[in-house]
Design a protein around this nucleic acid. Structure first.
Lengths: 203, 203
DNA sequence: ACACTGTTATGGCGTTGTTGTGCCTATCAT
DNA sequence: ATGATAGGCACAACAACGCCATAACAGTGT
């Protein structure tokens, strides 16, 4: 059985060291030389395993979205799909605030010469599938009105924006306000009451 | 009077060259040596004028928010404050999409060793004052309900999130959808009709 | 035992931000 | 008008970086 083939061990160790270095020292201190030293190897190992620094960062990018996907998958089912949407929003924010450097890596561009390749962008977008599903379910039961995918993208955009400003210190970090924010977003997409004509902004 | 002191000339030229280089080549190609060459001077000039690369980038950061502030100030007054809020949102997005690299510099962290200092963060936040004012006016006339500053920050967060995902290619760039998105945000903060009790999410 | 393949270690190359040194010019007191 | 002083700029050097060429190493099949 062994602890794994040497390849996997080395790759996993480099990735783990890089992750923790990013968390502890920030993206500017994330150098191949430091990673190699901490992983007790040479910079060349990073090249064979990841093809270079952008390749390593891409792996970190994907692992970040994988963690987000796992957390969102772990959100329990509620009888009310609206409740599930709310829980997904809070979980998203919780993951982001708990791993700020990783979140910035996933949504910003804090490391030079790294642009997420198409595949990784697709993977990132697919992370929102649980939200799309919950919105679709809410639409099916008449709790929301509109195209599920469009609505889910709106929720994602709004949630990301809030978290992003919080992480930058441009708005205050406030759990209650974040929760109220999510509720407003949801309510903005509830079907209009029967008897309510168009109220405004109809074009 | 006069074309300005040599200091101002040099400072302005370096800043202008840096801005255009950022736009044309992206943040990774923004090196002091290249800037100095394009500005027909040496790297030392950047140090006397800006104190180093982070200082130069800070000046670019502030000039970016200054341009945004100018654009938002240029949004005409409407009879309906809601119309003004809508126009501010569209103007914000227009500025961001027209200067993607600058917008990323202002909201992301694409350049190593640059963290916006407190003063610059405050200045950035103050850029949203026209939005706060418009929201306050809308609240005064009963078109919106809630704390103006809180609502304005929600609009900002949501707008930034949308633009950010668009710039990253995580959602499609779509003017009509962006407009609809803004309307939904606004409608989510309209006062409840008289006779409507609390409908949901009242905590 | 030998050749072959894939991974890692070593050393060096070019570029980056930064800093020290010296020059050059403008300003001011005499 | 002249000498002193201060400040900005050019040039060169330094440390750190990503990257790459080369050599040493381990494992496998013959």
């Amino acid at each position: 059985m062994s602890d794994a083939t040497p390849d996997e061990t080395m790759r996993a160790r480099v990735l783990r060291v890089a992750d923790s270095l990013l968390d502890e020292a920030g993206p500017d201190q994330l150098s191949l030389r430091k990673i190699a030293e901490l992983a007790d190897t040479s910079t060349q190992a990073v090249y064979t395993q990841f093809g270079g620094k952008p390749g390593l960062v891409d792996a970190m990018y994907r692992s970040g979205y994988q963690r987000l996907a796992d957390e969102l998958d772990g959100v329990p089912d509620f009888a009310d799909p609206i409740e599930r949407i709310r829980a997904l929003g809070l979980a998203y924010r919780r993951v982001a605030l708990a791993n700020p450097e990783h979140y910035k890596l996933m949504t910003g561009r804090p490391i030079a010469d790294f642009d997420a390749p198409r595949d990784s962008l697709r993977f990132a977008a697919s992370t929102m599938q649980p939200l799309v599903d919950a919105v679709r379910e809410a639409c099916d039961v008449g709790a929301l009105d509109g195209d599920p995918r469009t609505i889910a993208m709106r929720f994602w955009a709004a949630g990301h924006g809030r978290v992003s400003l919080e992480l930058q210190g441009l708005v205050e970090v406030d759990d209650d306000e974040a929760s109220e924010y999510i509720d407003r977003l949801i309510n903005a997409h509830r079907p209009r009451r029967t008897g309510d004509e168009h109220t405004a902004a109809d074009g």
